[in-house]
Design a protein around this nucleic acid. Structure first.
Lengths: 205, 205
DNA sequence: ACTCGAATTAACCAAATGGTTAAACCATAA
DNA sequence: TTATGGTTTAACCATTTGGTTAATTCGAGT
């Protein structure tokens, strides 16, 4: 059954699809209108310009995954819990929205300053890097993990999880995987990342 | 002193700069012409179209780093040597050409099929994933490293090295780093990646 | 000095693209 | 029934953009 949807909602959905696939520079207002099944003028009636519409989509994209991740960094009692929780929930979310990460990263790369505010202000708030920093240092002092720069560890966690989604087509070429094979690979990857990090940090006892 | 450069060379240099910064969709032929200090018609005189020019730049970009990496994967006698050599030469190259990785990955993501051939044929040849596969299995059988899927290990190596370059602006925001701080972070990262991988693989003896 | 072909440019063109306008449509309240 | 106000559209506009043309400049060979 088809759910009733207002024109505005259909526009948002269409814009999201087009922007995530083509990026700001590659997206076309006409494409969005066609996809939403409405006249192009209606786009400008609801959202004044391409930039305005893009900003809304970008904010929505950021909000759709940052908050849940951030809460983990605030609440996790120890590194082991944080790593497990992060890897699992982050990769699950990425599997469900595979275009999200490449989109956000690409747009930030091409317009860092103007999109910065968007990521900090009202919505998600700034990333709680301090909380993570303190947790890591606490664990080091307790002798639970080896000495490591928290920034390096954060980058490990992010890079290991994100890279397969940023470079999926490239990896499919190199590995000669089809989509099912790649998805299986992603499924196995969660435990592998957790294993890699915990063994190297001396958490495996 | 200014080195004499033919118009064609200046065009290539300008095109490289513009394409790497803005991507195919965001690049403008007029920008390239201005940057090269020549008339726009001359672009089409030397290179027929934007697509043709783009393809040349893309191929040049791929060729400027794939070959040296590939040779490592062919010649390394053991995993330990491969990891050290790869991380060091790969990250050095990325530091020197920070736009390269985001550019290639983004363009492949947006046109996988048509750029595929480019990456395999004449130039670099396909990535030697088999050689890597065999090396890893040999080391596992020799008991030198723990059991691990070679594809996962490959992804670890790539992701750990590449991610800071793909997400640099994002990370600068989260870490609140300026450029010197981030570069210092990158400098320390080489040894940290090597440490992470070797400890987790039981190579630290 | 002159010729000839390659290099270079100003001017131009057609299509694409973001955006606007004025009219038409349509539900609802008086 | 008919105002009324929000919604939707066809037609249009100005600018941008990739690409072309025809003329001009320039340098090497005669």
């Amino acid at each position: 059954m088809i759910v009733e949807q207002s024109a505005e909602e259909r526009i948002i959905a269409a814009a999201k699809a087009v922007f995530l696939e083509k990026g700001m520079a590659g997206a076309r207002m006409q494409d969005i209108a066609d996809r939403a099944g409405i006249n192009k003028a209606l786009l400008h009636y609801y959202f004044r310009s391409k930039d305005k519409l893009f900003l809304i989509i970008f904010q929505e994209a950021v909000m759709s995954f940052l908050p849940q991740i951030q809460s983990l960094f605030y609440t996790a009692p120890d590194i082991s819990t944080l790593i497990r929780g992060f890897v699992q929930s982050y990769m699950t979310m990425l599997v469900n929205q595979p275009y999200l990460a490449p989109f956000i990263i690409h747009e930030i790369n091409h317009n860092p300053s103007s999109l910065w505010k968007t990521m900090n202000e009202p919505g998600p708030g700034p990333f709680p890097i301090e909380a993570f920093h303190q947790l890591v240092e606490k664990e080091i002092n307790l002798g639970n993990i080896r000495t490591i720069d928290p920034f390096q560890l954060w980058t490990h966690m992010m890079g290991l999880c994100l890279f397969p989604f940023l470079g999926r087509p490239l990896m499919k070429m190199v590995f000669r995987f089809d989509d099912p094979q790649f998805d299986a690979f992603l499924g196995e990857r969660q435990e592998e990342i957790i294993l890699l990090l915990t063994t190297s940090l001396n958490l495996n006892k």
